[in-house]
Design a protein around this nucleic acid. Structure first.
Lengths: 341, 341
DNA sequence: CTGTTAGCGCTTTCAT
DNA sequence: ATGAAAGCGCTAACAG
């Protein structure tokens, strides 16, 4: 199939016996132009169904008005919300977005960045893959002075603006909630330990324990690889402990869901036997039985803010100095932790 | 913030005292070139960190290797799956994608198409918004010979390829399932009646009734506007009927979820009092209590196939004649219809 | 008020 | 084996 021919200014010019620049001027409503000429050109442009070629414009001004977005996974509800926010805010500011997913894969993340840069996006919004454990590709972006921001999955050492959630605070909230509901032994199920979020949430967890005068216990921190198998293994391990926890806070909702599934199948009562909480507030968490206590993160807002700040920097409205924007999370208490109700 | 300068061939050429065309040839490994010159150029390009400007190439060849995608909503799990499939398959074929969401809004759909066309995407993949009730913008695309396909939310009269699910078949499956589970009075909760999917699913519903020798009853077909309020209103109306249905098939899972929520709050037992089924197989449906019987639609596959076919047409591998690809759906029987278990 | 010219970055004849 | 020139579609500086 051949794409249909697009009308160009040149063709309009030829048809009307004027020069291309006159057509250009007419179409952008330049004042220094005979009204009659202008009228004729505009008319003809409409008639021929002329549409400007943004590609050509972009090449000229070296700006595409396009932002590149890289997320680990589009199908995750959280990232979909971010994208939605990015999209909406980008449109408000007259930008388009080009989206790539890394599938949590470092190689793909690098490849995506390369493609987006090659297509001349004006800037990038990146949320790192889980696999990303070295950062040369980001430093290269930085060195090549291609503006970008990191959101949600960030790396602290890169000198660009970052938009994150208050993970420490969120984890603190859930842990505190579990303790307030009467839990004495609260476990934290972490993701891989080099993950930024793993660390931050652990920090909040420990802080809450400390505030309640509870000593950290090694065996009350477990690490999952975040696969379903890994999560289930943890759930089983917990049941085999002689001194079981009475409350478990999982780093992500999906982890908690896997744990819940296994426990339910083993007849464990939630929250009576063990209270359970997650983090992210996925749609499924509201609907599962028992409904899962979690922490909600405004992904849409995060996306909007990321774009606003990035474009503010691009437009010189905001300073180029990297800043860190931290969004607050909200505890969503539900049945899975209502031990005393 | 100013975007950093990108190295161009011109600069490499100048530095080496050769012409731009030589650089171009070296970089695309042309054979008719002195090996030594080539080596030097390639080396210098690496050293200077040269990256080709795809924009310039695109302008030259009038092809961007970019596909435009328009979906009603990115945050819907189903469309996110489609996008994921589109993305992956596009990458396989060396294409990028540019995504826009219409937010179920006709004006935005039209605006999105315009932008994507202006940015010179090579082709479009479109899933229509719910509001879309006239189709000039699509016929215009057609007339301007911009290749596109429609997926999931299609319009039958437009002479382009369409990828859809067998909605008639899916609706037939659920209805049949309800009848087989012992339901005598099965209701169909439809969306707005001019919606393509509303019609198709009604067709399947009626076909199943007929095959079971059951006569269509006007009061057993209800229409919701698909808002939560609308859905709840229907749920209430059903409870007020003197001759209630004993099985209800809702056009989408979210509708069924709203209905379920209301009924549960009123003490209606599902499936004992009334069996309930949806369509789409959203993640939440698997997890709600009782788990919702539904029909699963392979969105990821749909996305992949849409891209494959579209690019086959673009590349002349497939004929330009529009075809209709129909994907089969699968019944997912769950607790909400297990009346006899 | 309008045309000519040059240039954005790249590729591809056409010369040499 | 390499360079010069033209052109993709558009705009802006420079001349009239």
């Amino acid at each position: 199939m051949k794409k249909g021919h697009q009308v160009t200014m040149k063709e309009i010019a030829k048809k009307l016996g004027v020069s291309v620049s006159t057509v250009s001027r007419a179409l952008k409503d330049s004042p220094e132009l005979h009204p009659e000429t202008k009228r004729k050109i505009v008319e003809m442009a409409n008639e021929m169904n002329y549409q400007p070629n943004l590609l050509a414009q972009s090449l000229r001004i070296s700006r595409t008005k396009t932002l590149g977005v890289i997320v680990p996974e589009i199908t995750s509800h959280f990232f979909a919300s971010c994208i939605s926010g990015i999209q909406d805010q980008a449109n408000v500011r007259g930008y388009n977005i080009m989206i790539c997913q890394s599938n949590e894969n470092l190689e793909l993340e690098i490849a995506n960045i390369k493609t987006l840069v090659a297509t001349q996006v004006d800037a990038l919004l990146i949320s790192l893959s889980r696999e990303t454990n070295h950062y040369e590709h980001l430093f290269e972006l930085y060195n090549r002075e291609i503006p970008f921001v990191l959101f949600d999955r960030v790396q602290e050492d890169i000198p660009v603006s970052k938009i994150t959630f208050n993970d420490v605070g969120g984890a603190y909230q859930v842990t505190k909630h579990l303790l307030e509901m009467g839990c004495k032994r609260v476990m934290y199920v972490s993701g891989p330990e080099d993950l930024y979020i793993s660390k931050k949430r652990k920090e909040g967890y420990l802080k809450a324990l400390k505030d309640f005068g509870i000593k950290e216990e090694k065996e009350l921190i477990k690490v999952t690889d975040l696969t379903t198998e890994g999560n289930i293994k943890i759930a089983e391990e917990v049941l085999e402990m002689e001194n079981k926890p009475d409350g478990v806070f999982c780093i992500f909702d999906p982890v908690a869901m896997d744990v819940m599934t296994l426990w339910k199948s083993k007849g464990v009562k939630i929250p009576e036997d063990i209270a359970l909480a997650g983090f992210t507030n996925n749609p499924t968490s509201a609907v599962v039985e028992p409904a899962l206590t979690t922490v909600s993160q405004p992904g849409y807002e995060m996306g909007k803010l990321a774009v606003s700040h990035l474009l503010d920097q691009l437009d010189g409205i905001a300073s180029d100095d990297p800043i860190s924007i931290v969004l607050e999370t909200t505890l969503v208490p539900r049945k899975s932790t209502q031990t005393n109700l």
